[in-house]
Amino acid sequence: MANDAEQGEKPLFGNPWIFIRGVPSLKFLPPEGPMEVAFAGRSNVGKSSLINALTGQKGLARTSNTPGRTQELNYFVPDGYSGEGDDLPPMALVDMPGYGYAQAPKEQVDAWTKLVFDYLRGRATLKRVYVLIDSRHGIKKNDEDVLTLLDKAAVSYQIVLTKTDKIKEAGVPRLIAETMDKIKKRPAAYPAVIATSSEKGKGLDDLRAAILETIGH
Rank of each mutant, 00 (worst) to 15 (best):
Q7S: 11
K27S: 11
H217C: 02
N65H: 07
A111N: 11
P34L: 08
L29S: 10
A153M: 10
Y81G: 03
D143P: 03
P97A: 06
K182F: 06
K163Y: 15
V193D: 00
S64T: 15
D165F: 11
G100Y: 05
P24I: 15
L54D: 01
S197A: 03
I133F: 06
V109H: 04
D134H: 05
N65E: 08
L60H: 05
H217D: 02
E199C: 08
L175P: 03
L29M: 14
K163A: 12
F13P: 03
T125W: 05
Y130W: 04
K10L: 06
D151P: 12
D95A: 11
E199R: 08
G56V: 01
D87R: 09
L93K: 05
I159L: 11
G80L: 00
F28M: 12
A195F: 01
F117V: 09
M91N: 01
M35C: 02
P67F: 00
K127V: 09
P31F: 07
I167P: 06
K58V: 11
L73T: 02
S43K: 04
G98L: 07
A188H: 03
R174G: 15
A209K: 09
A209T: 10
G122A: 13
G171T: 07
K152Q: 14
E178V: 07
Q57D: 12
E36W: 04
A102V: 07
K200E: 13
L12T: 01
L88V: 12
P173T: 11
L161I: 02
K58S: 14
A111M: 12
D205R: 14
I183Q: 03
E213V: 05
E9L: 12
M96L: 15
V131M: 15
Y101I: 03
A189T: 03
L93E: 03
M91I: 09
L212F: 04
I211E: 00
E36P: 15
G80D: 01
S197Q: 02
T164L: 15
F28V: 14
E144Y: 13
N3D: 08
G203A: 04
R136L: 02
P16W: 05
E144W: 11
G22T: 14
G138R: 04
T179R: 04
D206K: 10
T148F: 04
L60M: 13
K114N: 08
G80I: 00
P30C: 13
D206E: 15
R208W: 08
P173Q: 09
G203K: 00
N52K: 01
N74K: 10
R123Q: 14
I167S: 06
I215Q: 04
